[in-house]
Amino acid sequence: MSTTTRGSLLAAFATLLVGASFTANSVLVDYPYAGGQFLRYGFACLLFLPLVGRGGTAPLRRLTRRQWGRLALLAAVGMVGFNLAVIAAERTAEPAVPGVFVGCAPVIVAVLVPLTEGRRPQRLVLYGASLVAAGAFTVQGWGRTDGAGIAWSVGALAGEVGFAVLAVPVLRPLGPRLLSATVCGLAAVESALVGVAADGGAWLRVPAPAEAAALLWQAAVVTVVGFVCWYMAMQRIGAERATLFSGLIPVAAACTAPLVGTGSYGVAQALGSALVGAGVALGSRAPARSAVRPGTAATDERRPRIVQPVRDR
């Protein structure tokens, strides 16, 4: 199996995990936001430690202050801030609204990553990203909103873009597993700070059995498995092409919604799914220019709403 094929399968699997896990979000509606994020990312960080192994944290000592700042920003914007923005948007907007904005992330990443690397955007990736965005919109539709809902949805889009773009320079020295473990640890600390500042002593409580199961699923499966697969995909095919697969999130949500009685799958969902598939196929034909090449430090790591799922990061 080629590197490109493996990377594509990893990206698809990671985004499908997110899309199919929206039921966990509905269980956590009444749980304190910051406390839930703290438990999720804190437990995920602990689960990552055996995967990193003894001596696996050595690259962290070689990071510069600027790289540490980037990691902290990645956790704050792409994880804690992203989830907070989606939740805040859905207070005054229907879930489809932040989902539509987040669906535009492949287009922005397709432009932003090449510019930061001093090269031109690839046409095939741009065309594919546009089809993915159109497909995501078709699957989700539009919904009721106001100015605040749109503003928070833009914040969610910024978080989605930041999750990919901010990781590019630190993926090479850390590799997928150590990068995932580090940002989860930072996100746990940041969530605790947000919780104490916003809610005082009420920011954390013992979760009910159903809430504990949902948090465990998000930590062990969506975060540990999903993050590693996502960053391994970025390592192989680059951030631009990997982000194309984020269009599978609403598709997976649309496919699984009927199973739990929270939605239906109709003509619009089928058409949108086809557009997303066409966009991914078209964009994937472009050469992976920003992927980590074999032999670099990162590859020595043993090779390893309907839109509710946009909260799963």
Rank of each mutant, 00 (worst) to 15 (best):
A158E: 14
I87R: 08
A44I: 09
L126G: 10
V111Y: 03
V109I: 13
V52K: 08
L74C: 05
G162I: 04
I108K: 00
Y41I: 02
G53R: 13
N83F: 09
A85D: 01
T138I: 07
A105G: 01
L74G: 07
V52Q: 09
G162W: 01
V100N: 09
A151G: 01
V168R: 11
V102K: 01
G141A: 07
V132Y: 05
P114T: 01
A85P: 08
V102L: 11
G143F: 02
G81A: 10
N83G: 15
G78C: 02
I150G: 05
V132S: 08
Q67T: 06
P98A: 12
L84S: 14
L39R: 05
G36Q: 13
L60M: 04
A105P: 06
G135R: 00
P121K: 06
G78S: 00
E90H: 00
R70V: 14
Q140Y: 07
V102M: 08
Q122R: 14
G155D: 11
V154A: 15
R61D: 12
V109R: 02
L46G: 07
G149T: 09
F48Q: 04
E160G: 12
V77Q: 04
Y127T: 14
G135T: 03
A148P: 00
L73D: 11
R62G: 15
V154T: 12
G81M: 09
T57Q: 11
W152G: 05
L63W: 07
G81L: 04
G36R: 04
L46T: 10
V107E: 10
G128T: 08
V170D: 14
G147I: 02
A148H: 07
T64W: 00
W142I: 13
L49P: 12
V97G: 13
R40M: 11
A34E: 15
G149E: 02
P50C: 03
A76I: 06
P121H: 09
A89K: 00
G55E: 03
E160V: 04
V77D: 08
Q67I: 01
G162T: 04
S153K: 03
G141M: 08
A158D: 08
A156M: 08
V154M: 14
T116P: 06
A88S: 14
L63Y: 09
A110S: 10
V165L: 06
A72C: 13
F82Q: 15
L51I: 15
L74W: 12
L47N: 04
A93K: 01
L166A: 11
G135V: 05
P106T: 10
P121T: 10
A88G: 00
V132T: 12
L112M: 09
L46P: 09
F38Q: 05
V132C: 10
R91D: 10
W142N: 03
P121N: 13
